[in-house]
């Protein structure tokens, strides 16, 4: 019964993913980028006949729907087209770039999740105290600051003024790829990760805090007290148990913000991930790469949502029961 629900959810998401891709496809197709110019470059010396041939070969004058369908069929065959900017297959550009970004996102995601959760729980328990007030103020400020500005500020403070960290890039400039060590990579990762962590943490802290405050005010905490449970036991047995699942779910459901923040942070630190590739592709009208990135980013968001939904379905007994019956 439960597998059927997950299957249903998967199919729903797949259909939605196709629709989202179509939406992205239409947006890119309708943009004033001349696809022909994008493919052959602005200063090409091709004859009008040759141009016509290319147009027909790529089906550029066919209706959007037909072109989308062809694109979809190609995708299913593993062909995402060729990136104009990087002169490489879109799939290999995405794999290479995404492998950089995923490290950045994963680290920031875990850090902001764990730190935010712990801070949120402490704030909720000590609600109204000085620590809680300061943290809340900090979170409201950070929430109101654009991610790229946070990145700039960290750059100014830690890289320029203090000189602790490099200004940008994933690896030291002028080093051969084979010479780059893991430590080089980690060293260059620190500031982008901090930026993305700080940008994501306020949401986690504020949400967790709010939940903990609600839980502590609930009747079942009162009952636990009446039964002689001390503060530590109450937190371990009831507060954490009840706040954990919603917090984890929220963390999975926030992949969209994570991706956006990553793109901004990467651009500030010139980190060669999918975020810098996105801006490069969009600025140069690299339609195939842009489409590939749209698909991957949508897939990323959907995966997060899917995990969040499944987690809730499996872990919350109340929802599990409803789905089983």
């Amino acid at each position: 019964m439960r597998t059927r629900n997950i299957l249903y959810e998967l199919i729903r998401m797949l259909l939605l993913l196709i629709l989202v891709s179509f939406l992205a496809f239409v947006l890119i197709a309708k943009s004033p980028i001349d696809p022909l110019v994008s493919y052959i470059g602005t200063n090409s010396t091709l004859s009008p006949e040759a141009k016509q041939e290319i147009v027909e070969h790529w089906g550029l004058n066919e209706p959007v729907f037909t072109r989308f369908f062809k694109w979809l069929v190609n995708i299913l065959h593993g062909d995402m087209g060729t990136s104009i900017t990087y002169k490489k297959a879109v799939s290999s550009v995405i794999i290479e770039r995404f492998s950089y970004s995923i490290v950045l996102m994963l680290l920031a995601w875990i850090l902001s999740g764990i730190l935010g959760f712990v801070i949120g729980v402490i704030c909720g328990i000590k609600q109204g105290g000085i620590y809680d007030r300061i943290t809340k103020l900090f979170c409201l400020m950070v929430k109101s600051a654009p991610t790229f500005w946070l990145g700039l500020m960290f750059l100014v403070i830690f890289a320029v003024s203090l000189g602790w960290f490099p200004i940008g890039m994933a690896v030291p400039m002028g080093k051969l790829k084979s010479e780059v060590t893991v430590w080089d990579r980690l060293y260059h990762l620190v500031l982008p990760v901090i930026t993305l962590t700080v940008a994501n943490i306020s949401e986690v802290v504020l949400y967790t805090r709010q939940r903990v405050v609600e839980i502590i005010g609930s009747d079942y905490i009162l009952y636990a007290r009446a039964r002689g449970e001390n503060q530590g036991q109450i937190i371990r047995r009831h507060v954490l148990r009840n706040v954990m699942l919603p917090a984890i779910t929220l963390q999975f459901a926030s992949f969209s913000e994570l991706f956006g923040g990553m793109a901004l942070a990467e651009n500030v630190f010139a980190y060669p991930g999918i975020g810098t590739a996105t801006t490069a592709a969009a600025l140069s009208g690299d339609a195939p790469l842009l489409m590939g990135i749209a698909l991957i980013s949508a897939l990323f968001v959907f995966t997060g949502n899917l995990i969040a939904n499944i987690l809730y379905g499996i872990c919350d007994p109340r929802i599990r029961e409803k789905e089983e019956s």
Binding site: L16, L17, L19, V20, L23, A24, L27, I28, K30, S31, P32, I33, F255, S256, E257, F259, G260, A263, L264, T278, T279, A282, G285, L290, I293, A294, S297, A298, F300, V301, F302
Partner: peptide, 24 residues
């Protein structure tokens, strides 16, 4: 609901970039 899901299906920033590019 479908429209909402569609709009939230892409990361907000990516959608912003795509629409902005489409609108020139």
């Amino acid at each position: 609901n479908l429209c909402v899901d569609l709009c939230m299906g892409l990361p907000h920033l990516v959608l912003l970039i795509l629409i902005s590019c489409m609108a020139g």
